[in-house]
Design a protein around this nucleic acid. Sequence first.
DNA 1: CGAACACTTGATAAAAGTCAAACGACGTGG
DNA 2: CCACGTCGTTTGACTTTTATCAAGTGTTCG
Lengths: 247, 247
Amino acid sequence: MSGDNFSGFADRLGEATRLTDAERAALARLEEGPVPVKRGEMIQRDNERVDALYLVQAGRLMSFIDLEDGGRQITNLYFSGEFVGPTAAVGDVAHENVEALAASTVCLIDKSALRQLMQDHPRLIAMLFLLARDDRTALTQRLKSIGRQNARKRLAAFLIEMYDRLGMVGLGENDAFNLMLTQEDIGDTLGLTPVHVNRTMRTLEREGLIEREGRMIRFPDAAALRNLAGLTSRYQGVDLSWLSDGS
Amino acid sequence: MSGDNFSGFADRLGEATRLTDAERAALARLEEGPVPVKRGEMIQRDNERVDALYLVQAGRLMSFIDLEDGGRQITNLYFSGEFVGPTAAVGDVAHENVEALAASTVCLIDKSALRQLMQDHPRLIAMLFLLARDDRTALTQRLKSIGRQNARKRLAAFLIEMYDRLGMVGLGENDAFNLMLTQEDIGDTLGLTPVHVNRTMRTLEREGLIEREGRMIRFPDAAALRNLAGLTSRYQGVDLSWLSDGS
DNA sequence: CGAACACTTGATAAAAGTCAAACGACGTGG
DNA sequence: CCACGTCGTTTGACTTTTATCAAGTGTTCG
């Protein structure tokens, strides 16, 4: 398993902005873990207390909401290197469930420690806001996709988003990647039935827009798929100069 | 126009948590406005610079994303007393448009002033996180609704959410309220065509679940509508004690 | 080996979209 | 002041998309 560059909060945030030594030290002091999470284990439950802010060090997690009828809506996926719950961490009660899709390890900062961080290192809190913003952007993009695109486009947009978020590090040879989701999971993410997900994937496959081998997926013609999804790439980079410290 | 209790940031946030005098003063110092916004005017554009954090003092705004084909997906509505862009305000570039649905007045805190606030009053930043969390919750609830409910339930859930968010203050006599949205706007919010929104509303009307007069809406049987939407009310109140200052 | 579980496909039904036309309210310019 | 154009709403006829029900295949794992 190569490419595990970011062992903890300081390294991960340090990638986005130059942190001062004091900030790095503060993060290292607050950070707990890494702790292992089993596949299927829940680290946060809707309507229960929020305990911590999580950084996914390895593995994969998802957040979802339960429906009255027993179904669920998956709201986001969290890959290695991403942060779970940057928005929720400040509240007292969770509004979503968070569960591991595969055996994972997470670092955490206990919620009570966050307050101290806010007092001592306001800049780190600004970082947290940027994470919350990225999370929100993922949500609004999905909202647009579910609300306004048919199954073909939804699936194309979803696969490409996942591909992009996995990045260099998460991709296997030939840019193949493993979603670690059943077709039912994909349906719960995109607002489709598992049957329709299957048909749609098979169609994309026949058209040469995707290749599959088990749950590994590859894009033989990424440009065409991107075009189908109606995507222009975002996330160029963020200008953080305005919050650089004056020291 | 009664019930305009919250003239600015300090009053509005003060409602949620007891603010210290210093915090109130800091907010009052940073706050600009209120400034008027004309109906149809945009105060934030996708991919352009984020200028400020906004508090809606009167009127109504919406945020939305443009689609490739000229359509749009409305992501949230903002009523009098609510905050626009608590998440976006820290970033450099907006990921959504924000436009006034009716003539409105907004107070604002310029983005550059936010940094100062972060340095001096970390507790206020925690408040901002709570606002961001509420915004996110609205988004995930909508995602669930669009992804997993049919038009009837979607519309019922939407109308009730709007009713609840308008609260005592925003409701006219007999609890009637004005969405200020065309049926096309409602469709852009719920992922439906205007024609289908119309049919669905008319059906609910015939069934006695809603009454309409122009754009005013009333719930003759709110319990039945809530039941249809599959809603249990959230937002009981938030325990903020963990971030009360030690002074 | 057998029981789950995920995937696949067909037949059919339901939900939502599209196209088109008509109506009424509203406002503006001749 | 009224004729006219624009805009939002409403309804009908029809099409497309997606869901539902059902059955069969393959794989994994105890």
